[in-house]
Each structure stands twice: as structure tokens, then as C-alpha cells.
Design a protein around this nucleic acid. Structure first.
Lengths: 194, 194
DNA sequence: CAAAAAAGTTGACCTATGGTAATAAACTAC
DNA sequence: GTAGTTTATTACCATAGGTCAACTTTTTTG
């Protein structure tokens, strides 16, 4: 499969483009493979790019001043990932992005994104809607964090990411839920006993 | 001041429009006044509109099954407010929106928004960027909730909204921070003693 | 301005989750 | 397959924040 076909048939499978648009699109993306356990981004680096995950699994996490890790986002097939706060502002990353499962990504720079928005207006709509969905899901997560117990949050997590549990470590999930690995262990134990 | 001037000079003060665009804009917005303590939106209602806050203060909150309130967002002058999850999906609200301080709002429907995006492409950019900033700030809040103590979250809250404290009740702040009013009382007491 | 209602504070006690540390289990690499 | 390393579990105690209830202060209303 050529890069051309891939970009159009995987990333933007819901849109249709004319030949010139396809050329533009293809020139903007770069394909990359990432081995397990590698870092795609480190805090402190300038963030110029965002990444479409074709395959594999990554996570974005923040390391607090006390040294503790907090997982902000997992990204699996068909998700986008970056340190978006830094990406939007073209500023330095506060977060790290780690490859949890060997991954295939398509990378695009902020500059190229902005050019594409100008050249292909439907892309701006497409990404605005994507942002809207992300916004809604973050809001949902804030509510969940405010209103639910760790056990309930764990149960919704495994519902939301049914296949992720085989891939990720316990402490990834714990740091996403905002609890310690010990607490997660206890929660699982109690759930099994019931 | 005419509605025309208001919409262009307050809501979209950073943009410029031609006369036809201004007509379109003005026809899409409706101005409204809201008394203190009134409800702008209740959970269960369909959400067709979003609102620009020209003046006053509102809050979006969620009532959990156990009856507890969780404040998701405050909106002061120059912010937008809605139940965005429902607004984006044209579905039923999960949240309530309450007017905390007598407010002047400009209301626009989702349909009119979509038409404006078609007619005035710079608006799509404008709102995409707005979404990006909201996204970033929600992400920041998730990190704060995961990594900081209630006391620290309270301190950042009063930094982020320096003038809001006179307007809002203690229990609004507590429900935003994810703690009880009693805990907030204790936190304040400790902070004063230091 | 007085009475009533709402909001805020404080205290005593409770509970969920955190911290530390030892142990067990699961991977990884030779 | 064994040694070494990483990850997960368990136990024990500590603590932040929750709960319930009484009390005080502030705000609202007639």
C-alpha cells in the first residue's frame, strides 16, 4: 500500500478529496514506526507535531514535582496523540509520550496542519469536530473524577477501553485513575471476590 | 448601542467582517438578560444553543445520582457557556446552568453556528482555536485534580479566578474543587492561620 | 428591622485511599 | 531454563477528606 492510499483510506476514511488535495495531504504526513518502550516526546521539548495512531498503543503522562506520574491519555488505533497544550501554543511540552505497544504512526506538523486548513476547508471542520468530541470526553472525565469512587472509575475505564488491559501495565491504569497501584490491586481483589 | 455594533465589537472584537457578513452575524444572535438565581438550562432538556457571556456570572453543574452537585465550569465576562457535550451532539443536557450574578448573554443556535461556519470560514478557525484552548485548560484541570491536594487546587482556583470569590458561594467553589464545603472551610482556616 | 432561611464554621468520628515495606509473580535476557 | 529485573500483591499503619450534627453568621424577605 502506498503512503497515498494509506493516508486517505485510514486517517481520513470518512472524507473524500480531489487529486490535488490528495497530493497536498500526502506531502504533509510522514509515516513512522515506534518500538515498544520508546519515548515519542519528552517534557521540555518543543512540540511541533501531532500523531495519528494507525496501530499500537501510546500514553501521554505528566510527571508532577513530587515525581509521581499521571497518565492523561491513552491512544490506540485511530486516535490522535500529542501534548496538545504545547502543540496548540507551539510551546514546550509538559508531558511525556511513551510507546506502550509497538506502533505505526502518521506525523504532521502544526504548520502543515494550518496550511491544510487553508487549502482544504473540510479539514478544518473535521478537526473542529474532533476537538469537540475530545472536549466532551474530557469533561466527562472531570465529572467522573469529581463524582465517582476509584472502583467505579476503574469499572468505567475497562468498559471504555475493553482491550487495553492486556497491553498496559497496572500502574498505567492506576496513574490514569488517580490512585496508587496498591489501591488498584485492592480494588481488583474486591471485585473478583464479589 | 445597536445589537449589530455589540455583536461585532464585543463577541468578535478580534475579527473583521464585511457588511454582508455583519448582517448574517447579527441575524444569528439573540440578546438576553438573566436574573440572578435563574436557570438557563436544566438536565434533560435538548440543547440547541450556546451562549456568550457579555456580563455576569454563570455556572454549569452536574447532579450525580447520589444528589451531589459538581461544578464543571464557571463563565464570566467574555466566556462562552453551554452543556457542550449535549450541544455538540444536539442531545439532552446532563447538566444544569445557573445564573449566579445577573447576566447579559448572546445566544446562538447550533444550526446557525453551522451556517456561519459555511458562510464565514474565519469563524470556523476562530471557534476551532477556542476549542483548542478549552481543551488545553480542561487537560490542565485533569492533571491538577490527579496530582494536587485540595489546598493547592483551592489556591490555584483563586489565582485563576481572582475576582470570582466575591460572587460565588463557598459550596460552588467546593463542588468545583471536588470537596465538601466543610473541607473548604477547614482549608481556608488553615490558610489564614499561616 | 425582625424573623426566617440560607450559608458557613466547627467538632467528633469514620472511611477510602496513600505510604512503606516485604513478598510473590511475571517478564527478560543470557 | 535460570538469574535477574520489573511488576503486582498483600499487610500494616497513617492521613486527607467525608459524614453527621450542632452552632454561628450572613442574607433574604416581609
Amino acid at each position: 500500500m502506498t503512503l497515498e492510499t494509506e493516508v486517505v483510506t485510514t486517517i481520513f476514511k470518512d472524507l473524500s478529496f480531489n487529486p490535488e488535495e490528495i497530493q497536498l495531504l500526502v506531502r504533509s504526513f510522514e509515516k513512522l514506526h515506534l518500538p515498544k518502550n520508546s519515548l515519542l516526546l519528552e517534557a521540555g521539548q518543543y512540540v511541533h507535531d501531532q500523531y495519528y495512531v494507525a496501530e499500537g498503543c501510546l500514553r501521554t503522562y505528566y510527571i508532577a514535582p513530587d515525581g509521581k506520574e499521571h497518565t492523561v491519555q491513552f491512544a490506540i488505533s485511530d486516535w490522535w496523540i500529542s501534548d496538545y497544550t504545547a502543540f496548540f501554543n507551539s510551546s514546550k511540552a509538559l508531558m511525556h509520550i511513551e510507546c506502550i505497544q509497538e506502533a505505526t504512526l502518521y506525523k504532521i506538523s502544526k504548520n502543515d496542519m494550518e496550511s491544510l486548513y487553508q487549502a482544504i476547508p473540510q479539514l478544518e471542520s473535521y478537526f473542529r469536530k474532533k476537538m469537540e468530541r475530545s472536549f466532551a470526553s474530557f469533561q466527562k472525565r472531570i465529572i467522573a473524577n469529581l463524582s465517582q469512587s476509584a472502583t467505579k472509575r476503574y469499572l468505567s475505564f475497562i468498559q471504555t477501553y475493553p482491550n487495553i488491559e492486556q497491553n498496559v501495565k497496572n500502574y498505567h491504569i492506576a496513574s490514569y485513575l488517580g490512585i496508587t497501584t496498591q489501591s488498584l490491586s485492592r480494588i481488583r481483589k474486591e471485585l473478583v471476590q464479589e
